[in-house]
């Protein structure tokens, strides 16, 4: 017999105040094994991670990527050196998981020999943007997926050109071309808001 669930039976008067705590405190608690602190972390960054994943993988795969991201995060949190930087740390994990998923899909695709080009289930093209940020978010949705992927890896994840080329299994010259086209589309959209 094991009283492994003792923690769950203990009343947690600090729980509400914990949800207001800063990232460092929450991440430290989660790293210490506090699953409620980890829940707060998921609530805080789940949408962001899902948005992030949906910009790199097929949107229908985003939920799986987010799940893998947080499971890995839970395992690796005790080794996170700077808990205050938990958000960027999560972003690094979700990027890696997205690329893994992309590679797996690509391998699968070459076997099945079927084309997949789901329309992004993100902001609908028909939606009306009410701010520059929203307009650019919409524009990002309308980009071809390889352009969108390159742009996110470069501008959000901060990957170098050769790194993107390696991860996406494309020549650097192709990456440069995709980035130039994505930048032009996004800049044109941005300028329209000036």
């Amino acid at each position: 017999m094991t009283f492994g669930e003792v923690g769950a039976m203990v009343s947690l008067p600090g729980r509400d105040s914990l949800s207001d705590a800063d990232d460092r405190t929450i991440a430290s608690r989660a790293a210490d094994g506090d699953i409620r602190a980890f829940e707060i972390l998921m609530r805080r960054y789940g949408s962001l991670m899902r948005a992030y994943a949906a910009r790199i993988v097929r949107p229908s795969d985003a939920d799986d990527v987010v799940q893998e991201t947080f499971v890995t995060a839970w395992q690796d949190l005790p080794d996170l050196e700077n808990p205050a930087s938990v958000r960027s740390w999560l972003t690094t994990i979700v990027t890696r998981k997205s690329i893994d998923r992309l590679r797996a899909a690509r391998d699968q695709d070459s076997i099945d020999d079927h084309d997949f080009h789901d329309p992004a289930d993100g902001p609908a093209e028909t939606a009306t943007a009410t701010s520059l940020d929203e307009a650019l978010s919409l524009a990002l949705s309308t980009l071809p997926e390889d352009q969108r992927r390159c742009w996110v890896l470069r501008e959000i994840a901060g990957y170098g050109y050769s790194e993107i080329a390696e991860q996406l299994d494309l020549p650097v010259s192709t990456i440069r071309g995709l980035l130039a086209r994505s930048r032009k589309t996004l800049v044109d959209e941005m300028e329209a808001w000036r």
């Binding site: 829940e39 998921m42 609530r43 789940g46 949408s47 962001l48 899902r50 948005a51 992030y52 949906a54 910009r55 985003a62 939920d63 987010v66 799940q67 993100g122 902001p123 701010s131 520059l132 940020d133 929203e134 650019l136 978010s137 990002l140 996110v152 501008e155 959000i156 930048r183 996004l186 800049v187 941005m190």
Partner: peptide, 24 residues
């Protein structure tokens, strides 16, 4: 464009919020 890039993903987050509570 580079300056607003991080804001785009934040604007995305509103659209991509998980659709049900089951995900957690």
């Amino acid at each position: 464009l580079r300056a607003v890039a991080p804001r785009i993903i934040r604007a995305d987050a509103a659209y991509f919020a998980p659709k049900n509570e089951n995900w957690m």
